[in-house]
């Protein structure tokens, strides 16, 4: 064990991770809910000097994180966020995990309680490829980013961009920033593209805060 376990980042950082990193102030306190094997946390620690913590459901992911020196605990976004104190983080991140939770709206509430800001990314189910897949093949959509068949996918609560903004309105949550990503990785803004964003965007990233 003389050689420290080397962290090998994937060659290209996931597009949504880069966009999330762009939203984060250097040196802040970050909780990554559903942090997987810790790539985003490691990226944020390296590029933004954040004090990072993680919560991850899969034992495999947690073990990789801790072996790499990240502060991560095994736990469930649906049940374990209640243990975190109010406003204990600058950002609570939920990247591509919202759609896997049992009660997405409760998880959102918890994120906004724990973090001064919440950053949430999710796949847009109204993306045109999903729409045409369902319309013409009559089967549950599978795309490049949604590549697991319906019977195996952990995604149980899909939503669309419009669904999500409606939920934010219903929950009286302030949308501080939103970034819509096309499958090509190109970024659109909701203000310029309006309803088109819900058609052409494959992935969405929101930064949210509580309204005063």
């Amino acid at each position: 064990m003389n050689d420290p376990i080397k962290f090998v980042p994937k060659r290209d950082i996931r597009v949504d991770w880069q966009l999330i990193a762009d939203m984060i102030e250097p040196g802040s306190r970050v909780l990554d809910v559903g942090c997987d094997d810790g790539q985003l946390l490691a990226h944020l620690a390296e590029t933004k000097n954040v004090e990072g913590r993680g919560l991850e459901l899969s034992q495999h992911g947690v073990n990789i994180c801790v072996a790499n020196g990240l502060s991560v605990v095994q736990g469930n976004a649906d049940t374990d966020l209640v243990y975190y104190p109010d406003d204990s983080f600058d950002y609570a991140i939920l990247s591509k995990t919202l759609q896997t939770t049992h009660q997405p709206h409760v998880v959102l509430e918890q994120l906004l309680r724990i973090g001064r800001r919440a950053i949430v990314s999710f796949p847009n189910f109204a993306y045109w490829r999903c729409r045409t897949y369902l319309a013409f093949q009559g089967r549950m959509p599978m795309t490049n980013s949604l590549d697991i068949p319906w019977y195996e996918t952990p995604n149980i609560h899909f939503c669309t961009l419009t669904d999500f903004t409606a939920l934010c309105e219903e929950m009286d949550v302030k949308i501080e920033q939103s970034v819509i990503v096309k499958a090509s990785g190109k970024v659109m803004t909701r203000s310029t593209y309006g309803a088109f964003a819900n058609f052409f965007g494959s992935d969405c990233i929101f930064m949210l805060s509580k309204k005063d």
Binding site: Q59, N63, A67, G69, V72
Partner: peptide
């Protein structure tokens, strides 16, 4: 805080035995 649950059938005594996942966790 970090927390790892190590998969093993060795019971409580696992911490005294050759449990590579525990070694990796503590080492990291």
């Amino acid at each position: 805080v970090s927390f790892v649950e190590v998969e093993t059938d060795k019971g409580h005594d696992a911490f005294l035995l050759d449990t590579p996942e525990m070694f990796k966790t503590i080492d990291g």
